[in-house]
Design a protein around this nucleic acid. Structure first.
Lengths: 354, 354
DNA sequence: ATGCAAAATAAAAACGTTTTTATTATCGTT
DNA sequence: AACGATAATAAAAACGTTTTTATTTTGCAT
C-alpha cells in the first residue's frame, strides 16, 4: 500500500494507472476522458472521479505523438536592431500578452521564435510546417509581397498575420487601417494650415509603409495640393532613425512645419531631434504620432496621437488563430482596426514658417 | 518508383524509411544518427549520407515521448499592468532576444508563458515540472523570499533566475548589482551637494527593491547623513507611477532636489511630472536613472544613467540555462553585472533649494 | 428460452523514437 | 579446427496516447 503510493508519487499517473485503479481498459479510459459518446455515462463519471482523485494529467508527449498535434502556437518575433541595443520592438511584449490572454482557456501554449529578417522568418515558417513544430503560426512585419503568406496559404497551414500583403489572397489577419490613419493625420494638419508635412515612415517593402504613403498622398490630393514626397523619410523604426530624420529634414532649405510619426519609438527620436535644435512642439512645430503602447501621454509636452492599444490586436490574433486551428474559414477571420484620435496638442493652429 | 517518391513526399521520412532504404535496422539507424560508438564508421557514413539525401529530420514528438525531454526552454514573462494598457515590461522583448541568441545553435526552443503575478508564476512552474512541459525555466521578478526558487531548488529542476532572492540557496542566476548601483547614484548626488534625494523604487517584496534601498542607505551612512526615507516611493514600475510620485513628492513641504529612477519607464513618468510642474532637469532638478534598453539618450534633455543592456543579461540567462540543462553545477552559473555610468547631465552642480 | 441488434467495453495496433537485450559475424589464440 | 572474446547489427520492448477492430454484455422482440 505504502509502496504503491510511493511509486505513484515518483512517476506521474498515466492512463494505465487509471485502468488498474478503475478496472476499465485504457481504451475506455481514453474515450471517457475525451467525453466520447460511446462510453456509458456511469463509467465516465467513475473515471472522471478517479482521474480527479489521483490528479491525472494527460501526457502531452504521448498525445502529441499519436495525434500529430503539438498544442503549440508559434509566434515569429522580429528583432531587427539587435546590434546597437536600439530601443525597438518594445510593443511585442504587449502583443504576446494579448495572444496569451486569448489562448488562456485553451490547451495551446505559445512558442516564440526570434527572427532577424524576412528570409529568416520564411525559413522558420518552413521548418514549423515541415517538422510540425506547431499547430499554427502568428507573424508580423508583412511585406507588400510577402513570401511567407504565399507559402502558408498554399500549404493550408493555419496562421494569422498582423498586417496584410497586397496580393488578393484569402487568409486570416488583423491589421490597423494604415491608409486611413495616415490620411486622417495629414488631413488634420493640412486643415490647420500646414503644407510642408514630413512623414516618418518604415521601409518601403513593408506593406503598411505603402498604405501610409497612399493615405498621406490622398489627403494632399483631396485638398488639391501636391504631396511633399521629399519629406517622406524611410528607415528602420528605431529611435535613432527618428532623431536623425528630424534633424536632417529640418536643415533642408524648405523644412517641414509638421511631423507625422509612425510609432512611439520614432516619435521619441523626433522629439529628441527637435530638442537638440531648440525647437518646441506646439509652438514651433506640430507633431502627430501613432501609438501602440500608450506612451505618448508622457512625453513633454504630451503628443496628439492616433492610439490603438496593440494588446487588443494581440488578443484578436490569438482568437483568430484558435478559430483557424479549429478549422474555421479564413474568410471570416479578418479584422482591421481604426485607431482613435487623442488630442493633446493644439496642432491645427496654422502653419508656422520655418 | 514514381509511387514511392510520391508517398515519400506526402509524409515526412522516418527512421523506418531510412531502414528500408539502407537495409539496416532502425536500432542501428538511431544509434548511427546519434553518433554512438558501437556502430561501425562505414555504416555511419552510409546512413548519414542516406539521411542527408532524403532530408530526414528526427520527429520531435517521437523523441520527446521516448526520452521524456521536450527541448523546450520555458520563459515566465510577467505582465503586470495589463488592465490600463500601461507602458510596462517593454524590456522583455530584449530579454527574449538575448535568450534566443544563446539558444540559437542548440536544439532548444523558447516557450513563453505569460504570468500575472508571483502566485501565477508559482503555479506555472509547478505545472512545468509536473507535466514536463519544458526542460528548463527562466524567470524574473524575484522576491526577497521567493517561493518559486524554493520550489525549483528543492525539485532539482534546471532553472536560471534573473535576480536573486535573499535566502542563502545555491542556484543559477543572473543579476544586476542593485545595491552598488543605488549606492553609486546616491553617492554621486550627495557629492554634488544634494541632501533631499528621492528614490523611485519598486514594491518592497521584490528582492532588488530592498537591494536598492540598502545601497541608497549606505551612501547616506558613509557620508554621515541621515537617509531621507520619506522620499522613497514604492509602486509598480509604470510610467504613471513615476509621474504621480514625482508630482506628489515635489509638492511636499520639504521636496527633493534630485531623483533616482529605477528604470526607463518610471524615468519617463518622472520627467513628465517635472514638465507638468514647469521644472527643468539639469537646472531645477537632477535626475539619475537606470536604463536597460538605451532609451534615456533620447529624452529631452538626455538623462545621466547607469546603463546595462538587458539583452546581454538575456544572453547570459540562455547560456546558463543550457549549461544547467546539461547538468552543470549551479554553483558555477552565477553572474552579477555592474551597469556603467553614462554622463549626460551636469547633475552634480550642487543642491538647489526648492 | 432464443436470437439478434445495439450498446458497452476490451484488445490490439499504431505514432517515431531510444534503449535494452539478443543474435550473428569477425578475428585472434590455442 | 575449435573456442572464446569482441565487434557489429538486429530484434524487441518501452514511452503514453488515440483509434480501429474485436469481443462481451445488455435489452428487446420473437
Amino acid at each position: 500500500m505504502a509502496e504503491i503510493e510511493a511509486s505513484a508519487r515518483r512517476t506521474p499517473p498515466t492512463i494505465k494507472t487509471l485502468a488498474d485503479l478503475t478496472g476499465y481498459s485504457i481504451a475506455t479510459i481514453s474515450k471517457a476522458l475525451r467525453d466520447s459518446p460511446v462510453v456509458a455515462q456511469a463509467t465516465k463519471d467513475a473515471i472522471f472521479k478517479a482521474a480527479q482523485e489521483i490528479g491525472y494529467q494527460a501526457n502531452a508527449r504521448g498525445m502529441a505523438l499519436r495525434t500529430g498535434k503539438t498544442y503549440q502556437a508559434a509566434v515569429l518575433m522580429p528583432v531587427t536592431a539587435v546590434r546597437d541595443y536600439e530601443w525597438d520592438g518594445v510593443e511585442y511584449t504587449q502583443i504576446l500578452s494579448g495572444i496569451s490572454q486569448a489562448l488562456d482557456g485553451s490547451d495551446y501554449r505559445i512558442s516564440v521564435h526570434v527572427i532577424r529578417d524576412t528570409e529568416d522568418g520564411c525559413e522558420m515558417a518552413r521548418r514549423i510546417i515541415d517538422q510540425g513544430l506547431a499547430d499554427g503560426i502568428i507573424f508580423s512585419g508583412i511585406l507588400a509581397d510577402d513570401p511567407r503568406i504565399d507559402l502558408l496559404v498554399e500549404s493550408g497551414f493555419p496562421f494569422v498575420s498582423l498586417g496584410r500583403c497586397r496580393k488578393p489572397l484569402v487568409y486570416a489577419h488583423v491589421d490597423i487601417d494604415n491608409e486611413w490613419a495616415a490620411f486622417a493625420a495629414a488631413q488634420r494638419l493640412i486643415a490647420g494650415g500646414h503644407r510642408r508635412i514630413a512623414l516618418i515612415n518604415p521601409q518601403r517593402p513593408l506593406s503598411y509603409a505603402m498604405d501610409r504613403i497612399d493615405g498621406f498622398t490622398r489627403a494632399f490630393g483631396e485638398a488639391g495640393l501636391e504631396t511633399p514626397t521629399d519629406l517622406i523619410a524611410e528607415g528602420d523604426l528605431s529611435t535613432r532613425f527618428g532623431r536623425e530624420s528630424a534633424i536632417d529634414l529640418l536643415q533642408q532649405p524648405e523644412p517641414p512645419t509638421a511631423f507625422i510619426c509612425i510609432n512611439e519609438s520614432t516619435t521619441l527620436g523626433v522629439l529628441s531631434g527637435l530638442g537638440s535644435l531648440g525647437r518646441h512642439v506646439g509652438t514651433d512645430i506640430d507633431v502627430i504620432a501613432y501609438d501602440d503602447i500608450n506612451v505618448s501621454a508622457y512625453f513633454t509636452p504630451p503628443i496628439t496621437t492616433f492610439y490603438q492599444p496593440i494588446e487588443v490586436l494581440g488578443r484578436t490574433l490569438g482568437q483568430f488563430l484558435l478559430q483557424r486551428m479549429a478549422g474555421e474559414d479564413p474568410q471570416m477571420l479578418r479584422q482591421v482596426f481604426r485607431p482613435t484620435l487623442i488630442e493633446r496638442q493644439p496642432d491645427n493652429l496654422g502653419a508656422r514658417p520655418a
